[in-house]
Write a protein that binds this DNA or RNA. Structure first.
Lengths: 223, 223
DNA sequence: ATCCTTTTGTTGAAATTTCAACAGACTTTT
DNA sequence: AAAAGTCTGTTGAAATTTCAACAAAAGGAT
């Protein structure tokens, strides 16, 4: 477990918890670690919403597929980030999402019921953990709110520009890489891939941006 | 404050907190109550994200308006429900939403910093409050997730059907009233009002549903 | 009961998105 | 280094959505 301390310290869930305490707590919570190869399913739709997932290395995609087979990508989760926490905390019976490894991954799973019901040992860090979980959920809500703002735009162009603006804000720079290829970006923005390519081409022609595959550079000033 | 106990007891934020304790806590937290007439602004975009709002009577709409003046409706908040908690808990500097009263309303405001930083009196109920807040945020995330599922549908028809399905599930019945008129429903589903009316007409003709203004009855079996 | 206002449904034209299919560029594998 | 596979950009046609404008229906006020 110790080899993961470096990344776990960066995880918002464990803010303000000392290394030694963290090790004790993870034992107490019965944390388990699994590894997954690229494209493997980390969690699948319909399964019980029991576990919170924490990405220790690699990254995963949160996806949803409807009965016509249309994939939609909800979000991309990087190392040190948490996923599926809302379903586990809300004690939903089953999760409505599928989680796929983007690359070889190590994932930590924690049974959420161990977090929600204070353990018999009365870890003193438990209250801090719940507080951190609350902060994490608030941040997730903000992120979902951003995604709603993107999807609420009516045109492919506006969806794309809104997304790029949020990314620029996130990275604090007008030059950044996105974690999606074209098809994935289309599935994230919920638009047609070819239409998206056309729109990117137009923006390039208009001098609004430069882009090469996953790299983007915004050339219009975000005041 | 006592006259609001009946509704406050129904608020998820105060689960497992006894009446007497609740009164003490609300004082401790410096809760304030304001009243608003129909269509008045309860909170406006850009203002500091300091307060959590609780609807004591009436209902409010969470809206967002872009620079072209397109209104989008994020959600409808009924009595005993909470709003703006995510922005306050995540300590965002300003809120990106505007809250409008649907009808005459009484709203309780609590400065979130009083919740996040345990007060000097060390109320014992404080930990319970934070736990409840976490649960509430998890539930909100689920709701946002549902809205994302609606907006991720590509056609007006599918957005509408997905919304109606969630409503039927929420009310546990195929017959229910929605809290929106046509224009508001269009602003919630992020589609054109006239196109929405056409789609409702088609579904009626196909025998999929019956509807009259805000009342809907689903005639296809959700297995 | 009548007038005034708001809401809903309709329609046709314009704009946009989706779909399917393909070619060229780029990667990865052998 | 060649072959195979994946990703991106293009294109034209079909389907859908948006927009604007108006009429009918419903609700409120006097």
């Amino acid at each position: 477990m110790k080899k993961y301390l470096k990344i776990l310290r960066k995880c918002a869930l464990f803010h303000q918890i000392e290394d030694e305490d963290l090790i004790i707590m993870l034992n107490c919570l019965g944390a388990k670690i699994d590894v997954f190869d690229k494209k493997y399913t980390v969690m699948s739709e319909g399964k019980p919403a029991k576990y919170i997932g924490i990405v220790l290395s690699g990254s995963v995609q949160i996806t949803q597929t409807d009965y016509y087979g249309n994939r939609s990508i909800l979000s991309n989760i990087e190392a040190a980030e948490v996923f599926a926490e809302a379903f586990a905390c809300a004690e939903t019976h089953s999760i409505p999402i599928t989680v796929i490894a983007n690359e070889p991954c190590e994932i930590m799973f924690i049974d959420c019921s161990h977090i929600l019901r204070t353990c018999s040992n009365h870890c003193t860090f438990h209250q801090q953990l719940i507080f951190n979980l609350m902060k994490d959920l608030a941040d997730k809500t903000i992120l979902f709110h951003q995604k709603l703002e993107i999807l609420s735009k009516r045109s492919t162009r506006e969806k794309l520009l809104t997304y790029l603006m949020f990314q620029a804000k996130k990275f604090g720079s007008d030059s950044f890489d996105i974690p999606f290829d074209r098809q994935e970006l289309a599935d994230y923005l919920e638009v047609d891939r070819s239409g998206l390519s056309v729109e990117i081409g137009k923006l390039r022609q208009e001098g609004m941006l430069e882009s090469n595959r996953k790299h983007f550079e915004l050339l219009w000033t975000v005041k």
